[in-house]
């Protein structure tokens, strides 16, 4: 464990909590892509099956359980509790365009052709594109509430910190996980455009981030 990975995991946790609290306190999920949240719950569900097969550390187990619980709670709030505020007209990204290539690629490119490894690889590739429905929804509505942008900021920060973690681990431990690194870099690139908008609009105190 290194400071970059710890900070990345904390940033990821903060993002998830920001979104969950926003939905719970405003009792509304307007502007939130339920599809992205379902994809994230799927990412955690397919990646954390090793909870039952290997013990890495207490931290690892606790964080996995927390991420699973919070992501399912978020999906529950969107599609059950506050479903009447769910903006289905704008949450129209065709997730099958993400799932089919990701499933295909995880069968082609993996470390071992075993169910757990293929599911792990699937979760890595899926996480890289899981935010697309949310970013698509923002471009469609042309704006995002500032809380939603903070959520996206911390998600992007988590990815950037993980890249720093991989640089650190490569130099300190000779560790290099090619699938995670390639997929993680692609995922981080998707946030770059958002980061620019976040800094130039949200941090300038405009409140909402409205796209040009």
């Amino acid at each position: 464990m290194n400071i970059f990975r710890l900070a990345g995991d904390v940033s990821h946790l903060v993002a998830i909590i920001i979104l969950l609290l926003k939905i719970w306190r405003s009792k509304s999920c307007a502007g939130i892509s339920g599809k992205s949240q379902v994809l994230f719950a799927l990412v955690f569900s397919t990646r954390y099956l090793d909870l039952f097969t290997v013990f890495v550390s207490v931290y690892n187990v606790v964080m996995k359980v927390v991420f699973l619980a919070l992501s399912y709670a978020t999906v529950y709030l969107i599609y059950m509790r506050f479903r009447n505020s769910y903006d289905s007209e704008n949450d129209t990204f065709r997730v099958e365009f993400l799932l089919v290539p990701v499933i295909g690629l995880s069968f082609l490119e993996n470390y071992a052709f075993t169910p757990l490894e293929i599911l792990w690889t699937f979760s890595i590739f899926l996480e890289a594109v899981a935010i697309m429905p949310q970013l698509f929804m923002i471009t469609k509505t042309g704006e995002a509430e500032s809380i939603t942008t903070h959520y996206l900021f911390f998600l992007g920060l988590y990815r950037a910190l993980y890249i720093a973690n991989w640089v650190w681990r490569y130099h300190m431990e000779g560790f290099f996980d090619q699938i995670a690194v390639v997929s993680g870099v692609v995922q981080t690139i998707f946030y770059c455009d958002f980061f620019y908008l976040y800094v130039t609009r949200v941090l300038r105190g405009k409140g909402k981030m409205s796209l040009p």
């Binding site: 995991d9 990646r47 991420f67 470390y111 996980d177 699938i179």
Partner: peptide, 10 residues
């Protein structure tokens, strides 16, 4: 297959 079968990252 390449190494990295035990995944210790979240």
């Amino acid at each position: 297959e390449r190494e990295q079968a035990n995944h210790d990252e979240l």
